[in-house]
Design a protein around this nucleic acid. Structure first.
Lengths: 107, 107
DNA sequence: TCCACCTATTCGCATATCCGAATACATACC
DNA sequence: GGTATGTATTCGGATATGCGAATAGGTGGA
């Protein structure tokens, strides 16, 4: 048997899951994967208010999904482990399958 | 640029993400991956109340992550697309990296 | 039909999350 | 120091989610 216990999964695993469960954070992760950048650049690019981006980055940083380094007055954020992008991509493949399954169910 | 818009990600993508963002649902998915089974078997195996398992299965079914078929009085559930297990596994690898990153940060 | 078993739903409550707006904090340059 | 730019935090309210307990619905066999 290889079913993880709630202990193993633990709070942190859940936190990572829920971190990537927010649409805006997904957008942020994809954007940072394209190119590391600072908060207001992200806010401009994605059309979100700066405090919103900052809050979401705080959550992603808390969960160690992104890292940041100061560069003058700006703070550059980047993905820490690009496998999280693999996770998102695979999730999108599953999503595509879901849509197909629903389409054929309508037949 | 390859950053998905909120439109593409859409409600459904978010729903899939949040579906795998709950610890009990993760346990359920791993258990069903080992072996398709019915609701009360799951409830016994994972030590959860039957209504709880049923509710979570309902959510996973809604999102098309599991499928079910009636077999007499019982309803057998199984994973629809095992790539969702790949997602969970990769997420666990990322998690391991997070823990390492934190350990070295304490040095 | 009645009963036993399996499954799904509802209700009320507690908790968590998200957001916009305002504001506080930090850094660089003059 | 003062100002401009960039970043983080706080507050209040709306929304969503999870759970236990109780209950309703479905199925098959005596």
């Amino acid at each position: 048997m290889n079913i993880p216990t709630l202990d193993e999964l633990s709070l942190l695993h859940q936190q990572i899951c829920t971190a990537v469960g927010d649409p805006k954070r997904i957008q942020i992760l994809y954007a940072l994967h394209e190119q590391p950048m600072n908060v207001s650049a992200l806010a401009d690019m994605l059309g979100m208010p700066q405090p919103t981006v900052s809050r979401h980055l705080g959550i992603l940083r808390e969960r160690s999904l992104v890292i940041n380094e100061r560069e003058g007055a700006a703070v550059i954020y980047r993905i820490r482990d690009t496998r999280i992008i693999d996770v998102l991509d695979t999730m999108r493949q599953v999503l595509r399958g879901v849509l197909e399954a629903r389409a054929s169910k309508l037949t």
